[in-house]
Every structure is written in structure tokens, then in C-alpha cells.
Amino acid sequence: MAARTARDDDDLDDLAEINVTPFIDVMLVLLIVFMIAAPLATVDIGVDLPGSNATPTSRDEPVPQVALLADRSLTLDAEPVGREDLAARLLARGGDPGGLRVDVQADRNVGYGEVMDLMNLLRDAGFTRLALVARDTRGEP
């Protein structure tokens, strides 16, 4: 078994060349990981929304009440309505849809995304004055 103790000049030439391919691979993998992880880090913020103790405003005109129930069904003024018929029934009330205020109620067990889907449905139909209705907690401890 022979051991090599001296260096040749040829060995230095081989070591002077740096292979950057593994470095680039690692950097691309890290970039992808951070691009995926960054949006997920902002979603998991726990929010404890308070109840509303604001004084209700008086209404001069009747306001349509759209409710999203726990079973994900919709009602318009306490009458069941399908998603595809909701906008048409609201438009049948007449007037400018952008000027008509619509109150949106949602069961507390309904997810935030489903409430946003309902609001987007109403917004796509031209209703831009949407109000979220909360339970009155002014007399509760």
C-alpha cells in the first residue's frame, strides 16, 4: 500500500475549479420552500372577534336580509332561495343595485370563505353596499 505525501501541481488545478451546481440546486429548493411557506405563515393568525355593542341604526326603507344558514343554504327575507336565483330576486326589487343596501347574516358555524363566496356572488351581481349583521351583545356580560 503506497501513500502519497507530496502534492503535484496537477492536483491544484483540479481543486481550483468550484462546482456551483449543488449550490444552485440548494438555493432553488430553498426559494421554492419559502415561496410556499410565506403565505401559509400569515393565514394561521388566531383572531377572536368581539361581539357588537353598537347602537343599531334606524332604517327608513326595508333592507333585504340575505342569510347563510348552518347547512349552507340561503334565505332572502326568511324565504329559501338558491344561489343561482339570489341575484335575480334581489334585482327584481327594482332600483340601482349599487345603491341598494343588502344585510348579510351568517351562522357562526359557517366558514369565513363561504361568507366571502356569498359576498362575491352579490358583488358580481352589482350589489356593492353590503352590511354584515352581528348579534346584539349590549345587555350581555
Rank of each mutant, 00 (worst) to 15 (best):
R59I: 01
A37S: 14
P50W: 05
G46R: 15
L91R: 15
S73G: 05
E84P: 10
D44G: 10
D13T: 10
A92Y: 01
P80V: 07
I36D: 03
L76P: 02
G46N: 15
D48H: 08
G46M: 08
L86F: 02
G95N: 00
T42C: 06
D71W: 01
P50L: 12
P97R: 00
R101K: 07
L12A: 08
S52W: 07
T21P: 04
V43T: 14
D8G: 11
I32S: 10
P80F: 07
L86G: 04
N19I: 02
T75Q: 13
D44T: 14
A92C: 01
P62S: 02
N19A: 05
R101V: 12
V26R: 15
A78D: 15
D9N: 03
S58Q: 15
D60F: 03
D96I: 07
D11G: 00
N53M: 14
D96P: 04
Q65C: 01
I45Q: 11
V47D: 12
G82A: 14
V63D: 00
I24T: 10
E61S: 09
F23S: 07
A87K: 08
P39A: 11
P39T: 09
A67G: 06
V29L: 13
S52M: 11
V29Y: 03
A78V: 03
P22S: 11
R83D: 08
E61P: 00
R59S: 14
L49C: 00
D71M: 07
D103N: 12
N19Q: 13
D11E: 13
D71I: 04
E17S: 12
D9M: 12
D14S: 06
D10R: 14
N109K: 13
V110C: 04
R72E: 06
Q105N: 02
R72I: 04
N53W: 06
P62Y: 03
S73K: 15
D48V: 13
E61F: 11
A92I: 00
E79C: 02
P50V: 09
L31F: 09
L15N: 12
I24Y: 09
F23N: 09
R93Q: 09
D77A: 10
P62K: 10
A78G: 07
V102H: 09
T57E: 14
V29A: 12
G95F: 01
P22W: 11
V66C: 03
G98N: 10
P97Y: 00
L12Y: 13
P22E: 05
G98C: 03
V63Y: 03
R59F: 01
A41K: 03
G51L: 07
A38C: 05
D107C: 03
L30E: 10
L30T: 03
